[in-house]
Design a protein around this nucleic acid. Structure first.
Lengths: 353, 353
DNA sequence: TTGAAAGCGCTAACAG
DNA sequence: CTGTTAGCGCTTTCAA
């Protein structure tokens, strides 16, 4: 522990007027020179630039935002940064926004409607120009209010039924369809789906995809069954989601001798937990039961057995979302759009017969 | 696709003067009433509050920041949001900041020094009051500049040698020591460490811990060996870090018949890749070789074998970091502090003899 | 307790 | 091409 001392001189922040004084012109001219307006003589501009550089001028964004009426900030409301998909989303959104000269204000809701309402409120206070949100999907009042306040909004990953808002998501129906068709192709006759018990659009879409694949390909469509895993979060941020619950679920099924030929899991955590539970009861994957995951966690290719899973293009999701947001800002009256990005199945050992 | 229409009236934002007019007092009185100053009569205050509520007043933070000279924003500079530890950090920092009335501005550097410099610049422009950063650890010039501009700074997770800055991190030396001592206790005689080839403090600390444990407990200290895995990122955001490289490394070792009794991995990805490579070559974990991971990924308890790993308290890391930051802001001249949070080993099957 | 006036740092009109 | 003037919405002196 040493004594803290501000390194160097802790001088007052440089303002336009400082440059103006140094150069010998008006504040206004400095402003125009710096913001690249053409109504400045080359020589004056050069002087201003040089002086700004020398003085280490950093524009005051508060002042600028105040007069311009725009903060060049986009809000990013995420349910859970620890979810691989959303972690990737955060990265790509930040990257794209920065490239466009926007700043990202991050809010995490942890799947709590209350927290989400507060988050929307924060966005309003912060004066963001626009926002990207993965809605918790309980209420929509705060989102409506945000838009009414002039904040452009785009929903990502999950959509809110009644709301006429741009949406960028993943084609989960297709993803689940692929996964299901895949295990059916691999010879499974009875295939069950395991999903989160959250009332969100992604879960519904996956279920639809699963059911459609069963209807299209299964020998006995009546064997379809959707198991719901309790996912109500109890506490923490760092999470084995409700892998624990999926694990218990599988344990019960095995104990009851009630098993399908294959499981289509709603996420990789579930898949892993299922495999673990099956393995502990002496069953083998893929020999006795096939398991497909969803999300293609970076771990998937290194597990034993390696896990077949549906890869979700997080990066594309994020960059597309930002692009859509920018387009919306540019053309507020344009028709609402809906983008679905196709995920793709990556077959590995867990479904190999 | 339906036509986009701003829901409801897209009215002008409500200002203090609107409230003042409605109530019949001065703007100034409204301001005092709203900010809880005591020099306002109870009745006026009530009127103001009511009117503000009715009109849906939202303070303009740009204006407020401009005059107050504070944005109540903290910058959070992270190398990689997809890293489990940092994802947890993001959540907990956001949570704590929000509770304190601060907003989080997120920047991701992707381990690039150049990107980090730009990030620091962005913080300056955005006018954050303070910042939390996981430094890439190449240069420090931009951090110095940030502090000189009056931005309070706290390094998280990794520290920068020469800089006299508050630090909140994990006691990796201790973590690696525990992991190493654990496998030694479990009967391993030759234990090797596998680390990332990044020139960052965490890697160095883990190596130190490993070496100290070997010196303390190993039958043959000369058998110590530290393997470095190339981690230079080539492209993407979604990453199996360089699990691939670790996998190759292990493959080569097996091919050469050059194996220890146990591996102490620098992260869980490495551990998983090692296990996979060993398994593919007919070796078994833990029967033939023990493997300990680092980070305790939520998956760890569901792998086969379940993975022994060192759990890192991400939540505590984040909340402590914010607390330290706030303390620094409150007392700019206080001595620099250094907090180390203890991680703890979670023994599982991969090291069970 | 309240109001008038000034100003945070910047940009946008409008003259010159 | 440049300077003057005004004002973004808010808080803070300072009088009344």
């Amino acid at each position: 522990m040493s004594v803290h001392r501000p390194t160097g001189t802790m001088r007052r922040r440089v303002r336009l007027s400082d440059i103006a004084e140094a150069v010998g012109c008006s504040v206004n001219t400095v402003s125009r020179a710096l913001t690249g307006k053409d109504s400045v003589s080359p020589v004056t501009r050069a002087q201003v630039m040089a002086e700004a550089e020398r003085l280490g001028y950093v524009p005051n964004n508060q002042a600028r935002s105040l007069v311009l009426g725009s903060t060049r900030t986009v809000g990013l409301v995420i349910t859970n940064p620890s979810n691989t998909l959303y972690a990737g989303l955060i990265s790509s959104v930040e990257l794209r926004c920065r490239a466009l000269g926007y700043t990202v204000m991050l809010l995490a809701t942890e799947e709590s409607p209350e927290s989400e309402r507060v988050a929307a409120e924060s966005l309003l206070h912060a004066g963001v120009d626009s926002a990207l949100a993965v809605p918790v999907q309980a209420e929509a009042g705060h989102w409506e209010r945000l838009r009414r306040a002039g904040v452009d909004l785009v929903f990502v990953s999950r959509e809110l039924p009644g709301m006429d808002v741009d949406f960028v998501g993943i084609d989960n129906e297709h993803g689940a369809y692929q996964a299901t068709a895949h295990v059916l192709d691999a010879g499974a006759r009875v295939v069950w789906a395991v999903e989160e018990d959250l009332p969100i659009s992604t879960v519904r879409q996956r279920r639809d995809g699963y059911l459609r694949a069963i209807a299209d390909h299964a020998a006995d469509p009546g064997s379809a069954r959707v198991l719901s895993v309790p996912t109500r979060r109890r506490d923490s941020l760092t999470l084995p989601w409700q892998a624990e619950e999926a694990y218990r679920l599988a344990g019960r099924l095995v104990a009851d001798g009630d098993l399908p030929d294959a499981f289509v899991a709603g996420n990789d955590y579930f898949a892993l937990a299922l495999i673990r539970a099956l393995t502990e009861h002496g069953l083998r994957v893929p020999d006795d039961v096939l398991v497909v995951g969803y999300g293609d966690h970076p771990y998937a290719g290194y597990l034993t057995p390696t896990l077949s899973s549906v890869a979700l293009p997080a990066t594309e999701l994020g960059s597309t979302a930002v692009d859509v947001l920018m387009r919306r800002t540019a053309e507020p009256e344009a028709p609402t759009t809906r983008h679905l990005i196709a995920p793709h199945l990556i077959p590995r050992e867990s479904t190999r017969r």
